[in-house]
Design a protein around this nucleic acid. Sequence first.
DNA 1: ACAGGCATACCGCAAATATT
DNA 2: AATATTTGCGGTATGCCTGT
Length: 754
Amino acid sequence: MASTHCRPIDWTAWLPPLVACGVLPAAALEGDALRGVQAELRQHEIAPEPPNPDRTATADAFHRPLFPTQQLYEAVLRCCTEAEARAGPAPAHPTGWRFTAALLASAVLMEEYVRGHSTRAMMQAAAHSARTAAAAAAVEAGTGGGVVALLGNGGAGEAGSGGGGDVERDRAEAAADAEGRAASELLLFFRTASKEEAADRLVEALGEVEEMKANLLRVIRGVSPEGLVRVLLDTLEASRRGDVQRADGGRKTLGGVFFRELMKLKSGGILANQLLLLPSLPPLRSYQLNTAGMVLCGWGLRLPEALLGAAVDGPGAEQVGAEAEVEAEAGLEARAVAEARFQALLPNGWTGNWLVQAPTNSGKTRIFVEVARCVVESKRSSGGGALVVVLVPSVILTSQHAAYFRRAQLPGTAVAAHSSDSPLTEQAWNAAVRAASAGGGSGGTSSVLVATAASFLNLLLPREGGRPPVARLRQLDLLVLDEAHHCHDEHPFAQVMAFYESTAAATTALTPRPRVLAVTASPASEVEPTTLVLRMEQLLGRLGAALHCIEAEHPEVAAVVSEPRLLERRVRLRAVDRGLMGVLQADGLSSQIPALSADCFASGELKDSTFPKFWALLEYLQTFRDREYFHGIVFVKTRQDRHGRGMSDTEQQQLLEMFKAPGRKVLVATSAAEEGLDVPSCEFVVRYNAAATGIQLVQSRGRARKREVAEFFCILQDDTLDLHLHAKSQLEEDNMRQYTRARAAAAAGAAGNS
DNA sequence: ACAGGCATACCGCAAATATT
DNA sequence: AATATTTGCGGTATGCCTGT
């Protein structure tokens, strides 16, 4: 939608600098060969047509490569060869220089292409042109047509409950699917657009006159993007039902229906407004239930009804011992059964903190959400409110977890996300503390504060002028550490726990220390098993926690956690690549390299000569060219971005939204996306640079979560550190796995004995 | 063992941009 | 037009890997 700005690439503009560096001979700049190459490139459509939404894509379109690299390379090579034939061999260049030159020129061309098609460029283009285009497309068609077009041309929505044949149902599902896609696109639009633009688009979509815009602007103030989408969906649904009667017997316009639905939404209150589009959480899985239940029993908290119900008739109920079943049938109270079951899981009646290790994608978040729910309800039943702080290691995780907590709908609980953007201020903290303690019979308001560890640490540190810190750990009821393996040395996690340790002395029965629940998929990674044990003991010591492992081999865990197929591809430098290195590192050229790389490659990472790996990556991506939809992530070590500053937080969030949308999506990411990032349904993950630690290996592989079909593809280059690092990270993961298994076996043995 | 590079954060300030 | 919000950039911190 944004690629209408595709212009023919003037690749010849890049030739003079290459000639100046001596990579290309001067002869390459002239002659029929050059024109021939250009003609050939035009024929092959280097700049691909923007996808045409009207026409269902033909098979032909899908069989075309995403980028005609092979043709490009061959065309440039032909140009170089003919130039050489005309000018004679160049003695200054090593054998095979023309392959080198062709590769280099191809890479330069691709750089140009990539820059024009980068996500950043797409996002910028989408910010401006796409809106008007989409809005213009939405104006077509008659009653309801505007909204229908706005939401995509989905047919009958969920109202189609006739449910006849499979065909009909499939079509209804497909339509609902298309509508869901359109809705998510719309959501993205409303999130990124200003109120002004949103009103503009609504005016067009609803077929209203321009004068209504001011009115719309006023009315949609304070309505969340989710709310707007919800209203539009409701408007569409209402107009389909024919629910357009006006009080005076007339027929409501689309805009009229919209206003009515909007008022309905507003009367529902802000909270409902935010929750409308949020699907409720999936049912609790038995291992999540067991873990949460065990932790809560250890802490002596009263289990909430939600957990009790799941414990008695949930999916894991059959795992209750046979005698427990009998007792349940004998009329024993459900609570007692559940508590007995969870109590049996507790090692030695442990009442302290917990470190829960669970595989990636097994639903760690859900576990601490349920624990938080119980803490909140327990406080609530005694007329107060709970204060829960969730610490995460990266900014992007704060909003993600906050959204998840909102979905969980803890009773009487406000959820907030804090990081350097919207920092956790003294006012916000004091307000949360007051709300929690101001019970007074009516029940205090609980707060869940999701924050980066560093920003929370700022509140704990003494302020200048000898004033006491804003926050004290004893003010909160529950402290959750996500990705807790960061808790070591001087990391903010560790510093927070140092504060926790220092509060031990002042702990009384009236003001106990908060409970700590730490979760991670990869607690530590060490090459030596003995140092691994040491690290684990240190970690558990800092947390004051007992370790609970959720094994990947557990059948129910294995049923939900994807195990991607492991693919490895070893590449080695070819003569041509060595030639390139030789050319670039020759004495006469070395002074030009910085300028050349700055202009052409933006990275200067030429010493690695990553060409073979790049071709391997392209080849791998080609295997997906027939798919209309796929998602994948390519992990690289460095950012290769000349702007130096990466993406802002909001850009990251927008990008994540874009990536979640359907289509052909490849996300190229650094280690920032390794941990915790919730990117559903990735068919493949590519490691362009080998994982350096077992933690990285586990975390990045965990992003490939499309069941059954996911692949984890490692590109390893000989003669580099890739092989060593790959072996090291695998060894570290194996060590961790063995440690986990041993601990789980020991725990099972202890539980059996006691 | 230690410095250098690059990754991630945090904070503060000033310019740009959006909102009223 | 005035004000509020967002964004960009420099400075600082820590963790991890790498090369001397």
